Simulated assay, not measured.
Amino acid sequence: MGLLDIQKLSVSYDRKTILSDFNLAVAKGEKILIKGKSGIGKSTLFRMIMGFGKYDSGDISLEGISVDASNIWDIRKKVAYVSQDTDIAEGKVNDLVDEVFSFKANKSNNGRSDIEKILYELSLSPDILNKEYTKLSGGEKQRVVLVLALLSGKGIFLLDEVTAELDADLKQKVVDMFFDNPQWTVLAISHDREWESKAIKVIDFSCGVN
């Protein structure tokens, strides 16, 4: 049994099958790239793991415990999910940081003390904390949401196209940051080749995932 186990997961929307009998076992510390054309179910998989929707059949378990409505908040305390949608807030970046750390799942986390170090590693100036989030570039927004995920102190990351807006050097920085940490378990959806060069396992949805 892995850290994360998905067995015979089937998901459909409006009578269209998105995932059918999908199986995946993820060991602690594994680095997995998930790739494939758009609309094939990659992002849906992440949403199901986080409890953002219902699946038709199958089972998702984390550390041997099946994920359901009664324990989903316990799951979210352990898993950091960064989606493709970076339009997550208005106001200053610092206000967003405050809001994230006010969430129930993050109240016991002391990771905020590392914020300047993480900003530096992602080539961001501390001055960005005083900027309006909505006025940031696409690449800056992607890096800010990554900063928030890293500050969360969690050990499991679901990353959905988080380097799409970055240049080649920054893409590699992000890949190295997540894939070089042996303690973290990372599932990354991406079309960027930088992820594939360092992934332990590559799952290509275009080749069929049943």
Rank of each mutant, 00 (worst) to 15 (best):
D59F: 14
N210R: 14
A27S: 11
M1Y: 02
F205K: 06
V11E: 01
L24T: 01
I18S: 03
F178R: 00
K154S: 01
S20W: 11
L146M: 12
S125Y: 06
N130C: 00
F178T: 00
M50D: 05
L158V: 09
T134P: 00
N94R: 13
T17F: 07
F101K: 06
Y13S: 07
I156T: 08
K8D: 14
N210A: 10
D114L: 11
T163K: 03
N110M: 08
L122P: 00
T163M: 05
T86Q: 06
Y120F: 14
M177S: 05
G51D: 07
A105S: 12
L33R: 01
G208H: 09
D167Q: 13
D95P: 00
I75D: 00
D176E: 13
L129Y: 10
S20H: 13
L19R: 03
N106D: 11
L151E: 13
K16T: 14
K77N: 06
V97I: 15
I18N: 06
L9K: 10
L148H: 03
L151G: 07
D167T: 10
I128D: 02
L122W: 08
D59Q: 13
I128V: 12
G153M: 02
V26F: 03
Q7W: 11
K28W: 05
K35P: 01
E194Q: 15
L124N: 08
K8I: 07
Q172W: 10
D95R: 04
S102Q: 09
I118V: 13
K198C: 09
D176Y: 05
D87C: 06
P126Y: 02
K104F: 09
F205Y: 04
L166W: 04
R112A: 04
I6T: 08
N109R: 10
G53M: 07
Q84R: 12
S57E: 12
A168S: 15
F101N: 05
D98T: 08
L166M: 10
L159A: 08
V144R: 02
T86A: 03
V144D: 03
E194H: 12
R47D: 15
N23G: 10
I65F: 09
V174A: 10
D56C: 07
I32Q: 01
N181H: 11
D59Y: 11
D74S: 14
S190W: 02
V147A: 01
L119G: 14
L124I: 06
K104A: 14
W184L: 14
S61F: 06
L9E: 07
I65H: 02
K201L: 08
G139D: 12
N109P: 00
L166K: 11
D180Q: 11
L124K: 09
F103V: 00
I49T: 07
V144W: 10
D98F: 12
S83G: 15
L9H: 01
I203M: 03
V147G: 05
S108A: 14
E63Y: 05
K154D: 00
K131E: 14
G91K: 02
L45I: 10
